[in-house]
């Protein structure tokens, strides 16, 4: 057992930890890709949905968790990505990878254009503003001939992609999302981002520029969500404004991050798994499903406001404290010392 309270981690373990942080997701992804042939189609399909949910939550977490800007407008990027993919596949028939990246880029560009004015708003105003924006866009899309309203824009069947390929794309996308989240935390951009969230005045006073930090983050988030929307469109075979621009996507991201832990690296992943499993479970309760989910969300917010990650770190702190205390007791009893620490 290494000393957990050791103040100084030597260079080697830190490098190892970093390697593990980037390597482990890579390994999991490679393992999934390698074994994907052997998976049942049902598993493939469920895994795709789960991974997409996780990507959505991780991307939203970048802006709203790490960046502290509570966005209620992310559904726009799901829709933009979905439509971009459907339309490009329909009209241009470019290679799939190009189409996906292009969809993300379009979403990111639109994201930057929208964020530029929106980021002038703070706190609840930002949430209301982005929500208004999302609804204005959805209202427009519902009334725009181009989107073919409730009939939807179908991905041409000859261009459609089988579920296994969709899952592989989702695996790669999820990997990218995890790595990007890690990178953002490790890079100076992420430092500035976290600094802004923790204490905006302090960060500004230290020379951090708000827009220069938030805008790239927003663009990255929009890119990932755009590609996620594109994969959703591939999975469903069509896009409709009603579903692709649905506020539900944003709400899902909020719920997942709240359950998993807002502004943590792995919270959205854990939250996505929890929500996905919960939904599989409540699917049998039909009309009660959303009731159960909402009550769980309320209970978590009330009693564990830092989500699963908060509970986990709370537990690990308890364990660590117990270990330390035990060691201290052992030490004091072995030396027969009568001096009890004042720190107790």
């Amino acid at each position: 057992m290494t000393d957990l309270t050791a103040p100084r981690a030597s260079r080697a373990p830190r490098a190892l930890a970093r390697l593990a942080r980037y390597g482990a997701p890579l390994l999991v992804a490679v393992a999934l890709l390698a074994s994907s042939e052997g998976l049942r189609l049902a598993t493939v399909n469920q895994l795709t949905s789960l991974l997409l949910l996780a990507v959505l939550a991780m991307s939203w977490n970048l802006v709203s968790g790490f960046g502290g800007q509570f966005s209620l407008g992310h559904s726009i990027f799901v829709g933009v990505g979905g439509y971009a993919t459907a339309v490009i596949l329909d009209l241009l028939g470019l290679p799939l990878v190009v189409v996906l990246v292009l969809s993300g880029v379009i979403a990111a560009l639109i994201g930057v254009v929208l964020a530029y004015p929106m980021l002038r708003l703070r706190g609840p105003y930002f949430a209301i503003g982005t929500l208004g924006l999302a609804l204005a866009v959805q209202g427009w899309m519902l009334n725009w001939d181009f989107t073919r309203a409730s009939q939807g824009y179908s991905i041409p069947l000859d261009q459609s992609v089988d579920l296994l390929t969709v899952m592989r794309i989702a695996v790669v996308l999820a990997l990218v999302a995890v790595i990007v989240s890690q990178l953002i935390v490790d890079l100076p951009l992420g430092l500035r981002l976290l600094a802004l969230r923790d204490n905006e005045d302090g960060a500004l006073a230290l020379g951090v520029r708000r827009l220069r930090t938030l805008l790239p983050t927003w663009a990255i988030s929009a890119f990932l969500v755009g590609v996620m929307g594109a994969v959703v469109a591939l999975q469903n075979g069509q896009v409709t404004p009603q579903s692709a621009f649905s506020i539900q996507y944003t709400l899902d991201a909020v719920i997942i991050c709240v359950i998993g832990g807002l502004g943590t690296l792995y919270g959205p992943l854990i939250g996505a798994v929890a929500v996905f499993v919960l939904r599989q479970f409540t699917a049998d309760f039909a009309g009660w499903a959303s009731l159960i989910e909402a009550i769980i969300v309320i209970l978590i917010v009330r009693f564990a406001p830092d989500g699963a990650m908060g509970v986990l770190s709370g537990l690990s702190r308890l364990v660590r404290r117990a270990l330390v205390r035990r060691r201290r007791l052992e030490a004091s009893s072995s030396t027969e010392s009568t001096r009890e620490g004042v720190a107790a």
Binding site: V254, I255, L291, I295, V297, I298, V301
Partner: peptide, 20 residues
Amino acid sequence: HSTEAPITATFGVSVVVQTV
């Protein structure tokens, strides 16, 4: 706790009322 927590909770309440 935070400004987000009550927002999220009121959202949960709205879903509960709707579903009921």
